[in-house]
Design a binder for these strands. Structure first.
Lengths: 212, 212, 212, 212
DNA sequence: AATGAATGAGCCTTCATTCAT
DNA sequence: GATGAATGAAGGCTCATTCAT
């Protein structure tokens, strides 16, 4: 309850709360009052620290993103492109299913995908593209010489969207479908499935090409 | 502008408009005023015809669903489970990418997935389950004896989520990624990709099981 | 369900329903829709038959009043002014506690007393005065020579207000207080009480005068 | 017009205005806008300070009640139960005819009696019961050994309802009937009348019992 | 730096009334 | 004579924002 704290402190708490609420509800359905309450701050504090709701949203994005960097998919020393893909998928899935900043970012991203607010235009592409490029490269490597550009793109979509299920569905619905709680073990299992499934998929698609 | 029409007419226009707006904005962000204006009706007409916004939403779902029936995934005479799967995927994709009622339904569905309103509980399961069960059966057939329950489930998710990309991403973004406009030909191509990709995936997953 | 009835028929049903609803809820809280539904008529029928809500209210008053005439306190052949008073009180109480038109009128009257609408100015005094004059005369007779004008007036208020309890309180609350359901026997008992109580009261007040 | 005041101030003004308006119009017919205008506040202030109209109503009751405490019927040192009754009646009548908070309470009470909202269930019994019990005891004392339970109840109703006339009728109508303005002297006179009238009534009723 | 108070714009809903048939 | 459809005005409530301290 210490008042006159650093000021940065409140700001941070607001950002954290904003990430959560925006991630859960989307921009339009999020209530500033909820965010402030969750941050233990006054309703006016958002406008004080961030000017308005739209700007808080943009800052929340940036905040979620920063928390993400550290988790960023690293080019662990993998022996083969196949291993790289497995690695990538597992990392992505862990991101998506993680609690905290990473999960928030994933949901924020999904929300923006589904209902673009147009408030984060700039951050958007900068954030996403690098990761996409990595996946792109990996897929290409897995394919070897067999894939044309379109096939690589399609495989990208296939993989990304398989992983995205983690964030699209509410956790409880996903649990309902899978019949068990969302444990790290299950994530691991799912990661392995997606990797197996996709590796076979990519190879099939790569092989098919020559015929055409 | 014919006034004092049948009443069914206005009701229909409202439903149509509601589908569009709810699909575009989601329940919370949709404005009754927008819907009514789009339907050329008075704001009070929603209350008159549907009681309230929530019920209009539920009816809009039902409406979108009816428009969908005709497109319904039929068990066309397929020689093999593999063919069935190809068929299923193509139909699903066409649904998702269709204009009109079908597209609205897909978006409504996605919205509900991402931000559940809890207003359509009943319609939800009725609509989704049968389709899921069909896919389930097909996958099991493709797998032959090799798949355990979890694997089937995972494959289901893999396939559904690949197809879902069509609705998740705004059309223009998808076009941007793919580099060409969303033509029937492209849909067809994408359907083939997902089918190839997934068939290989399923078989790989099925084969892997015994070993374990 | 016979349509194209007399037209008078619907009108009557509307009046009856209006009496009930206005009596129960008062003018402001009564809903035309409720009245129409209760009368099995269309919402528009009120405006068709009566022009508007205010006029329906006025007509409902008149209607309740007509139903009242027949029950009107008659100068039964009573031997004494005391008997007349007992008679009057019993009749009044029976009115108030009766179901149907009489009770409705009593409630309408009370409602107008508590929240004057100003819509029945004319009917008001005409209706009430005659009855008041009768009571006035009876009280004067009971008092004999002892009462001055003010005392008679006060006794009038005392008696009327005792009887009014029947309509002021919701039936269930009255039952709660009295501890038994509102039977004719209870009404009879209450009438006897009020008569006994009031006769003694009047006589006391009449006697007191001389002292002053 | 001092802005950004204490907040307690505005709250109080709102409560005061609410008492007035609710007392005059009843819950259903009272307009929040009226209350706010009368309090010199914004329409949204009701929501800010009280959540909603229903709660404002409940708080207004409480407020009116607090203003009442000071006038509360006290067991002044009375020599006899008869004196107690006189005392009680005079106090009650003064309440009912008082201006300000007390009068508002009386009207609020009447309104709730006539058109129960069900919003003040708790406050209701707490407030009314103690007063009723006092009257009950006094009547029983006046009756001596002669009264059965029912008779006491009936006498209670007789007395309460006589006093209630003060609030039931609009002041101007009462003046019209009585032929003179509602002065403290008139209240006093009326109190004496009701006391004389009722004491005689009670005694008559008490005496009658043994016979039966 | 921070906040309680206040506000106005906007939304959903209700309701008496009007219209066309 | 009667009614389903339609409407506008008004009410209560929500919410982001602004103000004064």
């Amino acid at each position: 309850m210490a008042k006159r704290e650093d000021g940065r402190e409140t700001r941070k708490r607001l950002l954290k709360a904003a990430c959560e609420v925006f991630a859960r509800k989307g921009f339009g359905n999020a209530r500033i009052a909820d965010i402030c309450q969750s941050a233990g701050a006054n309703v006016a504090s958002v406008n004080y620290h961030f000017g308005d709701k739209a700007n808080l949203y943009a800052e929340a994005w940036r905040h979620a993103l920063e928390g993400l960097e550290e988790l960023s998919v690293e080019d662990a020393d993998c022996d083969s492109p196949e291993d790289s893909l497995r690695h990538f998928i597992r990392a992505l899935l862990q991101h998506f299913s993680a609690k905290g900043a990473a999960a928030h970012f994933s949901r924020l991203y999904l929300m923006e995908l589904v209902q673009p607010t147009g408030l984060i235009q700039d951050a958007w592409k900068e954030m996403i593209e690098p990761r996409r490029r990595r996946l792109h490269r990996i897929i290409r490597d897995v394919m070897g010489s067999g894939g044309d550009e379109h096939s690589v793109l399609f495989c990208e979509l296939s993989i990304i969207n398989q992983c995205r299920s983690m964030v699209t569905i509410q956790e409880k619905d996903l649990q309902y479908i899978l019949g068990e709680p969302l444990s790290p073990r299950l994530i691991e299992k799912l990661a392995r499935h997606i990797a197996d499934f996709s590796l076979a998929g990519i190879q099939a698609v790569a092989k098919r090409r020559p015929k055409k």
